[in-house]
Computed example of a mutant assay.
Amino acid sequence: MTSNDAAAAGWFAVGDEETPADRVRDGSANAPADWPAAAVDAGFATDEDDYYAKLREATVAATRAAVDERERADDRQLLHAVRAMDDAERVANELAERVSEWAGTLFPDAGTGVDGCRALAERDPDGPAEERVVSLATRVADLAAEADELAGFIESRAPVAAPNLAALAGPVLAARLISLAGGLEPLAKKPSGTLQVLGAEDALFAHLRGHGSSPKHGIIYTHEYVRGTRPEDRGSASRALAGKLTIAARIDHYSGDYRPELEAELDERMRTIRARAPDAAGGGGDGE
């Protein structure tokens, strides 16, 4: 490769609508070369030190652009939304307890929980203490309403970001799995056995330390196919569900096309597992 050829192939040989960072992210070369010398020959850098300084600047800019792009991806928006929803619900419930205790000293008919706060928020306060209680109750009602809005956002966005996962797990559980894994790509790369126990890390670590049995399921317990299956068969149900969810996550990440046959296959598998019940098949389950 001549010096001119190397300069033309180098990351620093930017076009009219490119930046060095663009070339670092998207460019390639057919063979290695003496890039510092080529950059100096091309007039891009004054010397080798200048070349490496500009290379560092370009790589930092390329990395920052990649991070910004990744954070705006649909699965990352789901991750943030479900965490925000959970935080809003948790704080609303915690504050609702405080409001109930306080309101009970001022309003004999005060209700409890978030619903009690919604009712209090409609009152006309009389005096500084009642103003503060009504104001705090209003904040709780607003937080609960925000959690509902976030749930609506998740319901609408999960089928777009992960159509197969959302169809099998439901939008909120799909978002929780993505959140626990740190994104759709990390979730797609996990084996089904790991997905099966996501959310049960404390129990898993206790088991590894010899302080408990191995967990059979994590957050997927909230799925009807696990929660609604008799205890003897929940191990099989969890494995079947986790297997299909893993396939769904991989299809969503690597191709993104919707595969309705996954739902049919999961439904059939669950019918087989639930048929093990004595009143359905005259036999027992595989145990947990």
Results as ranks from 00 to 15, higher is better:
Ala38Ser: 14
Ala38Tyr: 08
Ala38Met: 07
Ala38Asp: 11
Ala38Gly: 12
Ala38Cys: 14
Ala38Gln: 08
Ala39Met: 03
Ala39Asn: 02
Ala39Val: 05
Ala39Tyr: 02
Val40Asn: 02
Val40Glu: 12
Val40Gln: 07
Val40Pro: 07
Asp41Arg: 09
Asp41Tyr: 09
Asp41His: 13
Asp41Pro: 00
Asp41Cys: 06
Asp41Leu: 06
Asp41Met: 06
Ala42Gly: 14
Ala42Trp: 04
Ala42Pro: 05
Ala42Phe: 07
Ala42Lys: 07
Gly43His: 05
Gly43Cys: 01
Gly43Arg: 03
Gly43Glu: 00
Phe44Gly: 05
Phe44Asn: 00
Phe44Trp: 15
Phe44Glu: 04
Phe44Tyr: 15
Phe44Lys: 05
Phe44Cys: 05
Phe44Val: 09
Phe44Ile: 06
Ala45Leu: 04
Ala45Ser: 09
Ala45Lys: 03
Ala45Cys: 06
Ala45His: 04
Thr46Cys: 10
Thr46Ser: 15
Thr46Trp: 11
Thr46Ile: 13
Thr46Gly: 10
Thr46Val: 15
Thr46Met: 11
Asp47Phe: 05
Asp47Met: 06
Glu48Leu: 01
Glu48Arg: 15
Glu48Thr: 15
Glu48Gln: 13
Glu48Met: 01
Glu48Ile: 02
Asp49Lys: 12
Asp49Cys: 07
Asp49Met: 10
Asp49Ser: 13
Asp49Pro: 00
Asp49Tyr: 11
Asp50Pro: 11
Asp50Trp: 03
Asp50Thr: 02
Asp50Gln: 01
Asp50Ile: 05
Asp50Glu: 04
Tyr51Val: 01
Tyr51Met: 00
Tyr51Cys: 01
Tyr52Cys: 03
Tyr52Ser: 07
Tyr52Ile: 07
Tyr52Gly: 07
Tyr52Glu: 08
Ala53Pro: 06
Ala53Leu: 12
Ala53Asn: 10
Ala53Gln: 10
Ala53Trp: 08
Ala53Gly: 12
Ala53Thr: 15
Lys54Thr: 09
Lys54Arg: 15
Lys54Ser: 10
Lys54Ala: 14
Lys54Met: 14
Leu55Asp: 11
Leu55Thr: 12
Leu55Val: 11
Leu55Gly: 02
Leu55Glu: 14
Leu55Pro: 03
Arg56Pro: 00
Arg56Glu: 11
Arg56Ile: 10
Arg56Lys: 07
Arg56Met: 09
Arg56Phe: 08
Arg56Asp: 09
Glu57Lys: 15
Glu57Gln: 14
Glu57Met: 11
Ala58Trp: 12
Ala58Ser: 14
Ala58Asp: 13
Thr59Gln: 14
Thr59Trp: 03
Thr59Gly: 04
Thr59Asp: 04
Thr59Asn: 08
Thr59Met: 12
Thr59His: 09
Thr59Ser: 11
Val60Phe: 08
Val60Asn: 12
Val60Ile: 14
Val60Ser: 13
Val60Lys: 11
Ala61Trp: 00
Ala61Leu: 04
Ala62Glu: 02
Ala62Phe: 00
Ala62Asn: 04
Ala62Asp: 01
Ala62Gly: 03
Ala62Lys: 01
Ala62Thr: 02
Thr63Glu: 14
Thr63His: 14
Thr63Leu: 14
Thr63Phe: 13
Arg64Tyr: 03
Arg64Leu: 06
Arg64Phe: 04
Arg64Trp: 02
Arg64Gln: 08
Arg64Val: 08
Arg64His: 03
Ala65Cys: 02
Ala65Trp: 06
Ala65Leu: 08
Ala65Gly: 08
Ala65Pro: 08
Ala65His: 03
Ala66Asn: 13
Ala66Arg: 13
Ala66Thr: 14
Val67Gln: 09
Val67Trp: 07
Val67Gly: 05
Val67Asn: 07
Val67Phe: 12
Val67Met: 12
Val67His: 09
